[in-house]
């Protein structure tokens, strides 16, 4: 495909499953330009002046919501946040009606997080506003996966051919699933490890995805290690015996990190449980890019908003 013809204009961003390698490339390259902008003293540009973005969050979120909010504001858009705890269910308003209401106010983009898998896709069939999925249940979290890819590129140059280990609660992780799509599209090998009770059965049927019982086998000679957050309430539902045992058998610590390539990169989508899935000394060690991930998240989200609303136009054409 002619690269100049690739555009995300007016597309919904539901998951990396639906993006081509070329489209992912376009997002990551645009994010690189955005990152330069964020590094400036005066960050604001009028690229999205007159555009409106609603962050519609049915689940609590700090970094993703703030990141999308600042991304929109730095680009000059008007951004409104609606945070509500599964409100449609509680108040009796259907998701369809909530979406109609927001659409009727002339919203260009709805950034949506919802606990139900497929909620963003459902929304995309209902309203004319463009939908960016900011997390739907355990299904997908495309902007997180894109910032993971961006960070891997930043440190490793290329994603293709890399061995990427993803550790922990794959079962409940929308990040893991979107990472798998993105990493596979860009040619990485994905190695999953964690307690078998937190591993989706049959996921090894996915091409290029390898499942290990021992985290050591996943980490062995890895270029990148992505450590997922363990939600403590999972222990109560009988999925693992205790946090202590988890840390000892499945947590990433110095000894296990030593099995990876010497320059292996450590990622974590946050928020961390230091001492559980990741030992405190690793969280902010030289190999950790966890803080950088947050920075990159902003750039990637700016790129998404810009590309969906403006296509591939020059970012500062109007400034």
């Amino acid at each position: 495909m002619d690269k100049s013809k690739i555009s995300l204009r007016n597309k919904h961003i539901l998951d990396l499953e639906y993006l081509s390698a070329e489209e992912i490339d376009l997002i990551l390259n645009t994010a690189k330009e955005m990152k330069k902008l964020v590094g400036r003293d005066i960050k604001k540009v009028p690229a999205l002046r007159g555009k409106s973005i609603v962050n519609l969050f049915f689940e609590p979120s700090t970094r993703t919501r703030t990141s999308f909010e600042l991304a929109g504001k730095y680009l000059g858009a008007d951004v409104v946040n609606i945070t509500t705890s599964s409100s449609s269910v509680v108040k009796g308003e259907s998701l369809r009606d909530t979406l109609y209401t927001i659409e009727a106010m002339g919203t260009d983009i709805i950034v949506m997080r919802h606990k139900a898998e497929g909620a963003a896709e459902y929304a995309s069939q209902i309203v004319s506003s463009r939908i960016i999925n900011a997390g739907d249940g355990a299904h997908a979290h495309p902007s997180q996966a894109l910032l993971d890819l961006f960070t891997i590129r930043q440190y490793k140059g290329d994603v293709a051919g890399k061995k990427v280990a993803i550790l922990g609660d794959i079962l409940h992780s929308r990040v893991a699933r979107s990472d798998i799509w993105g990493l596979r599209k860009l040619g990485a090998e994905v190695h999953l490890a964690g307690p078998r009770t937190l591993m989706p059965r049959y996921i090894a049927e996915q091409e290029g995805v390898y499942v290990h019982d021992r985290v050591e086998d996943a980490i062995d000679q890895a270029d990148v290690i992505n450590v997922l957050r363990i939600q403590l309430e999972r222990q109560k539902t009988g999925l693992f015996p205790s946090p202590r045992e988890y840390a000892r058998i499945f947590g990433l610590n110095k000894d296990r990190l030593a099995l990876a390539k010497p320059d292996a990169l450590v990622l974590h989508p946050g928020p961390m449980n230091r001492g559980l899935e990741i030992s405190p000394d690793i969280s902010y060690c030289d190999q950790s890019a966890i803080q950088e991930q947050v920075k990159n998240g902003l750039s990637v989200r700016m790129a998404l908003l810009f590309l969906v609303l403006m296509g591939g136009k020059n970012i500062e054409a109007d400034s």
């Binding site: 497929g118 355990a138 997908a140």
Partner: peptide
């Protein structure tokens, strides 16, 4: 519960 539910993140 199968390969499809595994990638959709839906409990099978």
């Amino acid at each position: 519960e199968g390969a499809r539910s595994a990638m959709l993140g839906v409990k099978g």
